[in-house]
Design a binder for these strands. Structure first.
Length: 459
RNA sequence: GCCAAGGUAGCUUAGAGGCGAAGCGGUGGACUGCAGAUCCAUUACACGUGAGUUCAAAUCUCACCCUUGGCUCCA
């Protein structure tokens, strides 16, 4: 039984799909105006793991993500660079997808661009106006917060608070908390609409897209903690007003922030790190392990030393796997009289592992079970009590872990490229040999290196 | 001000009333020609502070201290 922490109820609830064993999942995608950063990576790695686990548990998942490819930031940046907004958006969308691929995020079934769903957006706004949930002003079309009783139910804010802290009141709006569905603009990229030229507001693309592909009600909606308010509250208001059905989403899932040295990562603080910067220095798997070694809802503090720790921890698992494979390829007995005992131990560990994952995807606890298991089995292996058939089962268990956490444990060497350092060591040793006038061995080294197209030229 | 999340060994993190957890790191030992890997032991008064409830509190209650975040750009 999988339990999920639902932001809406602030409780863990049993996952019950709306439709048999199918899960419809939507996660808010990025606004593609710049390179993606490691905070994005944290969120999308988390939902990738979640999707992998749901699939492992026999659920059929349709994972949809939007791409916000039109908004103020894109337009501003593009005009600064003297290029078309669409050009900028496509460039960063491409980089985003490449980054995700490198990080092993590969379970999104469909990416939906906002600009390719303008008719659906307009149609949804028209229905909101018809329902008297929205109204038109000189500057655009706005959602009327007072028309939706549950407004703010996800973030648990009340409307009065929202109105007090409004920064720039727009006098055309009925309530300060009303948000734009359609912005009337004709000096920027625009689309024609019943309200003239303009472009969509921030929140409407998601509900237009999810209504099209997932319907008015679906299972899980995810995103970063920072989207709860106002974005997800706005989505609920829009969709539940349009359809009259509720809840729009059964389970709201939010990932915690990634901080750097205890502070929020931001460009102004100078602690901003893009995925590309990160991957200059670290293996994607190491970052992935780092992310999954903290619960997805907890804040996670990024630092070089934390990544070093992750690298060593992950290395332990890779080494164990290497050892297992080596033994399976050895001439060990296929079975022995201890097998039953080990099958029981293995099953116990496996059950505990799944129990941890069932509990709101508790990857840190699941990892601690894996490490305990590895220690115990290392001990047994040292004492040479384990047969080949057991080792094969162990291998399958670790690989199952790998498939859920997103690590390819086979066919991937776990070491850094130290070629340059290695050559330095070899040439140093050869220099030592030459000093000793061991011409035979130093010539042999030179010729062996030449076979590898590495040419040494002595002065 | 309002609303959240959090403070657990040197570090990174789980746990949520009852045998002191996992990894990383440090130290010692076993194994090894040496090293590594691995194992064992050890390092640790482990639970922000002060009260309370309870046979029993890191876990529940209250108060307080501290950190971080959100409060219409945000993953």
């Amino acid at each position: 039984m999988i339990k999920i922490y639902n932001t809406l109820t602030r409780k863990k609830e049993e996952l019950k799909p709306i439709n048999q064993n199918r899960i419809k999942l939507f996660v808010c995608g990025p606004t593609v105006y710049d390179e993606s950063h490691i905070g994005h990576a944290r969120t999308y790695i988390s939902f990738d793991m979640i999707t992998r686990y749901l699939k492992n548990q026999g659920l059929s998942v349709f994972y949809l993500q939007n791409i916000t490819d039109i908004d103020d930031k894109i337009i501003k940046r593009a005009s600064k660079l003297g290029i078309q907004p669409v050009e900028l958006a496509r460039k960063y969308e491409k980089e985003y997808l490449e980054d995700m691929h490198l990080l092993g995020v590969e379970n999104v079934n469909y990416y939906a661009r906002a600009t390719e769903h303008i008719p659906e957006i307009i149609n949804q706004i028209e229905r909101l106006i018809a329902n008297e949930n929205a109204y038109e002003t000189e500057t655009g079309v706005y959602f009327d917060e007072s028309s939706f009783q549950d407004f703010g139910k996800l973030s648990r804010r009340n409307v009065e608070d929202l109105n007090v802290h409004r920064i720039n009141p727009d006098n055309n709006k009925r309530n300060p908390g009303d948000f734009a569905l359609w912005k009337k603009r004709d000096d920027e990229p625009f689309w024609n609409s019943p309200w003239g030229k303009g472009r969509p507001g921030w929140h409407i693309e998601d509900t237009a897209i999810t209504e099209l592909y997932l319907g008015p009600r679906y299972d899980i909606h995810g995103g970063g903690l920072d989207l709860i308010f106002p974005h997800h509250d706005a989505e609920i208001a829009q969709m539940e007003s349009v359809s009259g059905e509720k809840p729009m989403v059964r389970y709201w899932m939010h990932t915690g922030f990634l901080n750097v040295k205890g502070e929020k990562m931001s460009k102004s603080l100078g602690n901003f790190l893009t995925i590309r910067d990160l991957l200059q220095d670290y293996d994607p798997d190491v970052f992935r392990f780092f992310v999954l070694s903290t619960h997805y809802r907890s804040p996670i503090d990024f630092s070089k030393s934390a990544l070093e720790q992750s690298k060593n921890s992950l290395g332990r698992i890779y080494k164990f796997m290497g050892q297992i494979i080596e033994l399976i390829e050895s001439d060990l007995n296929e079975t022995n009289d201890q097998d039953e005992n080990y099958i029981n131990k293995l099953e116990l560990a496996r059950n505990n592992f799944f129990k941890a994952m069932d509990n709101d995807f508790n990857t840190p606890e699941a990892l601690s079970i894996i490490f305990n298991f590895i220690r115990d089995f290392n001990r047994e292996i040292n004492e040479e009590k384990v047969s080949k058939s057991i080792l094969k089962r162990v291998m399958l268990f670790i690989m199952e872990w790998g498939s859920i956490f997103g690590f390819k444990l086979i066919g991937k060497e776990y070491y850094e490229d130290k070629t340059k350092e290695l050559i330095d060591i070899i040439t140093d040793i050869r220099e030592e040999l030459r000093d000793r006038k061991d011409w035979e061995l130093s010539d042999l080294i030179r010729s062996k290196l030449k076979d590898l197209n590495i040419v040494l030229e002595d002065k």
